[in-house]
Structures are given as C-alpha cells and as structure tokens.
Design a protein around this nucleic acid. Structure first.
Length: 274
DNA sequence: CGTCCCACCTGATTGC
DNA sequence: TGCAATCAGGTGGGAC
C-alpha cells in the first residue's frame, strides 16, 4: 500500500499527535518476522523514551527518541523505524478502543493514548537505529535534475523497474511510478538508459507534481490505507492509469491497458505514452 | 554488481 | 453456494 505520499501523511499525523509524549510501556506480539531488530532491544530502547520528532524517509516512518526530561538540547538517543509494508497501519488510539486483529506492537503514551502498529500481511518491519537514518536512495522531492538523470545512466532495465528501485530513488512505489510515467507520456517498458535528457526531466517534474498533489489529498486509498487517525486518502480519484484497466484515458479516451513489468501490474495509455 | 524472480503473509475478489 | 485460484500499495535473498 503505502508509498511516499501515504507514509508522509501518516508520519505528519503521528508527529502532530504524539510529539513530546513519553513512551511508558511497550508491548510486542512476538511474531519474529515483524521485528528487524530484536524485540528485546526495541522494548529496551523505546520504554521510557520521549518522542521528539516523527518524519518520513523514503517509505519509512522515523521517530527520533531521547531520554532527556527537559526541552534543552537533549542528547541523541536512537531512532525508531516503522516500515508499513503493504498493509501496515500506525494508529494513535484511545486505550479503550479494542485492539484490532493483527496488532503487532502497542506503545502506551504518557497521556494514556496508545500508538499501535497493525499489519495483517506482516510485510511491515519495526526496528531501532543508533544513527540518524538516511534511507537507501535519493529523495524524489528534493533531488536535482542532474542527479535524477544520472540515476538512470547505463541502466538496461525498464524505467518502471528503475523507478521502483529504492536504492536509486526511495519512496516511489507501484501507483506513483505508473502515475508519473503516465503524466510524462513515457511507456513503462522503455529502457531507462535510452530516455532522453528532456524525457527524464519531464519525468522528474511529473513525479514531483504527482507526489505533491497526492500528499495534499492525504494519499491514495486503493483498498485499506488510512492515516494515523484512521482516515482514508482521496488521490485515487485523480489516478490517470492505476487500477483503471479498460477505462478511457482521461486525456484521449483510449482504453487503459494493464501489463506486467518487473513482476508488477503496470497501467498505461497506449496512445499518450510512447 | 545489475537484473530477474520468487517467497514472505492475509484477505478480498474472481471464476469455475 | 462453495471452494480454488488469483491478485494486492513492498522488500530481500538467491540465481544467473
């Protein structure tokens, strides 16, 4: 599910709701796959820590923790990383609301509310980091035109697969790769290295536009994505191609086609994208 | 190293 | 109706 706009929406929502809260108790489910760091280490680092800041890096939610009691320049302690995978949710809830099925972590906060991690498919991951987390690739919203173009130089794979490679750009997933290529008029199977300089710049600008617009609308809710308050996003109403197979292109009316590229369902307009 | 493909999970939807 | 097959926003490891 969650790509850059959805993760940014959740991170911002969690930041507004829990910044400055102390984590009083930590419960974890014991499902080993969910915990990238040992559960004991996660519990040890989180218990008693204060959440100073919550941000997004790529598709990861990053919470900066410290143990200072005051506000003055606390020493950096650790970062708590939440990756939502396909179906993960990070929810700020009142403690009297029953725990949803597939809850894998519950942090009880100083004011009695709970920060809950819920993930039916268990592709999500929780971990702690001792350094400031930078992520595997470049940020799509701030990369320069020259750096963006250089990412694809010499890549023999498709532009679609390259956009999904998190060690190049991080944060772009299946929806926004398809939507950016649609807006840039580029076929998903084109070899990345063969795109012209101007096509690449068109692609970068399309990607920035689509990501910013999706953030404004709270992300895309295709089946089950919701923000930290349980509220859905609305960008799916503006999708040009994603999940629109057989429906008319919003620009030219040609039916949208769906193919498989790099093992992922890929949607495009055969008329507008060349 | 770059690239491809599959496994990892559950639940919703489709098709026989 | 019932059950099996298929598909889903993501990664990470093994094979080549």
């Amino acid at each position: 599910m969650p790509e850059l706009p959805e993760v940014e929406t959740v991170a911002n929502g969690v930041h507004e709701r829990v910044r400055g809260q102390r984590i009083v108790t930590v419960w974890t489910s014991g499902k080993p796959q969910t915990f990238k760091s040992p559960e004991s280490e996660i519990e040890e680092v989180l218990t008693g820590a204060t959440i100073r800041h919550v941000r997004r890096v790529g598709k990861t939610i990053v919470m900066t923790l410290d143990r200072a009691s005051s506000h003055d320049t606390p020493p950096f302690e650790a970062e708590f990383l939440v990756h939502l995978g396909m179906t993960g949710r990070l929810l700020v809830s009142q403690a009297d609301i029953p725990l949803p099925p597939h809850t894998h972590a519950v942090l009880t906060l100083g004011d009695g509310r709970e920060l809950r991690f819920v993930d039916p498919r268990r592709f999500g991951r929780l971990s702690v980091h001792r350094e400031i987390y930078a992520g595997p690739g470049a940020e799509p919203l701030s990369i320069s035109a020259a750096e963006f173009a250089s990412l694809f130089r010499g890549r023999r794979t498709s532009i679609k697969a390259a956009l999904l490679n998190q060690s190049l750009l991080h944060g772009v997933g299946n929806i926004y790769a398809d939507e950016a290529l649609a807006r840039a008029g580029i076929r998903p199977r084109r070899q990345a290295a063969r795109l012209t300089r101007s096509e690449l710049e068109h692609l970068r600008l399309s990607l920035v536009d689509v990501l910013k617009r999706a953030i404004e609308l709270g992300g895309s809710s295709v089946s089950d994505y919701v923000d930290a308050e349980g509220v859905a996003g609305f960008f799916q109403l503006e999708h040009r191609v994603y999940a629109r197979e057989g429906q008319p292109c919003r620009v030219c009316g040609t039916p949208i086609r769906k193919i498989v590229v790099g093992g992922r369902g890929t949607h495009f307009c055969p008329q507008c994208q060349r």
